[in-house]
């Protein structure tokens, strides 16, 4: 069984992003870029399934600019076998991403597609569900525990009410939550080795088969409204009387 892992190049999670003064976007020039943290968990999970002898091959795919090769190389250094960059110079929206990924899925015929539940830039949380829908295969979203068997997978999902377990027939799409695993660190020899692993670059246009663009238009970026400055109190008594004054307790 092949596993396909989809990853996205995003602004590193440690960067505090700033909206550009003209409201045209967020400042990304010279900002550190990384693999979306949820996607890094997806890579790790795929590698663990392969290492457990339940998969033969891990292919990692990304849609993004040419520079996204860096993130694919990192994934290869973690242990993925090969990589595909679907090159796009412009940001694409979820439905187009899912359509493009479907094209790769149809070529590669993976038993599992694993990807992060959301990208930490647009926070959309859509592409895995859309891919599953377009592919007409089951989905297990927000997964914090995964047990893969021959023809099925048992997935524990983090839901508002607690932990939900579902079983899906393979092939299926899994979207990862934070507690699924802790991704491994990449070692230097692996980085060297990753340079020799195959990385194909294809144009996004070649994956879309005349897909009809139904994009949303982003009109403006702005900074969130800051909260008003608060006050510091010195004692519990002072705190309690303030809370009572505001009628909160």
């Amino acid at each position: 069984m092949k596993i396909l892992v989809a990853i996205k190049r995003v602004v590193d999670y440690n960067v505090r992003v700033q909206v550009k003064p003209d409201g045209s976007g967020v400042a990304t020039d010279g900002v550190k870029m990384s693999i979306n943290p949820f996607d890094e968990i997806a890579i790790e999970e795929a590698l663990r399934i392969k290492e457990a002898g339940k998969a033969s091959e891990v292919i990692v795919v990304s849609i993004g600019p040419n520079t996204a090769q860096q993130q694919l190389r990192t994934a290869l250094a973690m242990g993925a076998d090969s990589a595909i960059l679907i090159e796009s110079d412009v940001e694409i929206q979820s439905l187009k991403a899912a359509t493009s990924l479907l094209n790769i899925v149809e070529k590669e015929q993976p038993g599992l597609v694993i990807m992060g539940k959301q990208a930490i830039d647009d926070d959309n949380n859509q592409t895995p569900q859309m891919l599953a829908t377009l592919w007409k295969r089951p989905q297990a979203t927000f997964v914090s525990k995964l047990e893969v068997n021959e023809t099925t997978a048992l997935a524990t999902r983090e839901v508002d009410a607690g932990l939900e377990t579902i079983e899906v027939t393979l092939p299926a799409v899994i979207s990862t939550d934070l507690r699924l695993n802790e991704p491994r660190f990449v070692k230097l020899p692996d980085i060297m080795k990753a340079k020799r692993k195959p990385l194909d670059i294809i144009s996004i246009a070649d994956t879309l088969n005349g897909f009809n663009d139904n994009e949303l238009s982003i009109q403006k970026y702005e900074s969130p409204q800051p909260r008003e400055k608060g006050i510091m109190v010195e004692s519990v008594d002072e705190l309690v009387s303030l809370l009572k004054e505001k009628g909160l307790v």
Binding site: V17, I218, S223
Partner: peptide
């Protein structure tokens, strides 16, 4: 977006 560090107007 960006964990609430930015807000976009979408049409």
């Amino acid at each position: 977006i960006y964990a609430g560090n930015a807000v976009i107007t979408v049409n």
